[in-house]
Design a protein around this nucleic acid. Structure first.
Lengths: 214, 214
DNA sequence: GCAGAAACTGGAATGGTTGCACTTATTGAC
DNA sequence: GTCAATAAGTGCAACCATTCCAGTTTCTGC
């Protein structure tokens, strides 16, 4: 009785419908597998028409990744509202470590993670999902640095950072992955010639034909 | 009558069929647009069944990008057969400049380029296509450097390099794009604070507190 | 209240993709 | 040459995601 918090009944119902669809989808996918469940099944279980389902989600794969909007908001917020004096890249690293690594190691998400990693269509969709945010992130970075909105270096940095989740899948130590890739981004490939690295000639090299040119 | 070059009639015919399909597809797409041509149309024009079409290409979009295999081969060859003493990254930059930039500016490809850029499904498929080579390229780099096949830095480098074509689309000076991104990759973000860039702080803060630690 | 917008519905159509049972062509071995 | 094995191709029907359409119901602002 106390609050009419500016969100009307309509909006609430819409959100509820959306949530019902996403919940139904995840449950069915987890139980039977993504490709063995049709969108009609999902719509059925959520008690809506398939038309409605597609009014809320642009594709079957999107049913699994609700939350895109929030993820992008968090991403740009991480650079825009970073602690005073903090480097943009540093802010991104911090965000990656707190948000992504934490999420990856949350046991409640194990089923979800397994589902995505075992379903090619979902892995692919997930990777593209990250890249869809590259524009927004690049623009945010550029804005912070006072460069043109489509500044190449900023766009590139955004894309590279957003490759990290994809690079991390299938690797055990996701924290170390984040750290390593950020080191590479900050200091460049040049400095990454650690111990074992970059003396292509000495060890085994029959592969150095002195002058092929072309 | 002189050569039986180890490729039998069967293989030749198969290749011919594949080519006929790709040719028919490109011609129809260029004339009517990608989405207004159905795979059945393409099959029809190439005088094969749609079943056969899908035996040669895994998806409608793939009809446009035949040549994937060659592209990947060229990519790994670029690092494997680079001039003696040349850095791996240098070899990749050279490859990018000669192969990609040249291709982008070839007027014979204008129609093709326009088709891809104007069709979201094709742009997307094209971007994913590059990333599909990341595994092979990363492995090739790792092999050259004597690291583990799935070495993180190598995988990351491969992916970052393969982002370049996508970053370059829509930008005028594709050569400059390649150069800039390689500079970023080699020397790192730290060094990319060029002239116009890095004094966004006037308003709220000097953002380089050297040690916020963690 | 009421008009208009927005959410939702049911069903049919479109079109990419796959499965199946079958024919035809090529090959390698005898 | 003959033949069996195999790969390429066929035609068709089915599947399913996605969209279109023509409504109906439900909110919202006035």
């Amino acid at each position: 009785m106390t609050d009419t918090p500016a969100v009307g009944r309509r909006e609430r119902k819409k959100a509820a419908t959306r949530q019902a669809i996403a919940d139904a989808a995840l449950e069915l996918f987890l139980e039977h597998g993504f490709e063995r469940v049709s969108v009609r099944d999902v719509a059925e279980k959520a008690d809506v028409s398939t038309t409605t389902l597609f009014a809320h989600f642009p594709a079957k794969e999107a049913l699994v990744f609700d939350r895109e909007a929030e993820v992008e908001a968090a991403l740009t917020a991480a650079v825009r509202e970073r602690p005073a004096g903090q480097d943009v890249v540093e802010a991104l690293r911090a965000h990656a470590l707190t948000s992504w690594v934490r999420m990856a190691s949350d046991p409640r998400r194990d089923g979800f993670t397994a589902l995505v990693e075992q379903t090619p269509a979902l892995r692919e969709y997930g990777e593209r999902m990250w890249m869809r945010h590259a524009g927004a992130l690049g623009a945010a970075i550029a804005a912070e640095l006072g460069r043109e909105t489509d500044d190449l270096a900023c766009s590139a940095l955004a894309r590279f950072v957003l490759e990290i989740p994809s690079l991390a899948t299938g690797r055990h130590h996701s924290r170390a992955t984040v750290e390593t890739v950020f080191d590479l981004l900050i200091h460049g490939w040049q400095s990454s010639r650690h111990g074992s690295g970059d003396r292509p000639a000495p060890a085994h090299s029959p592969k150095d034909t002195p002058r092929p040119a072309k």
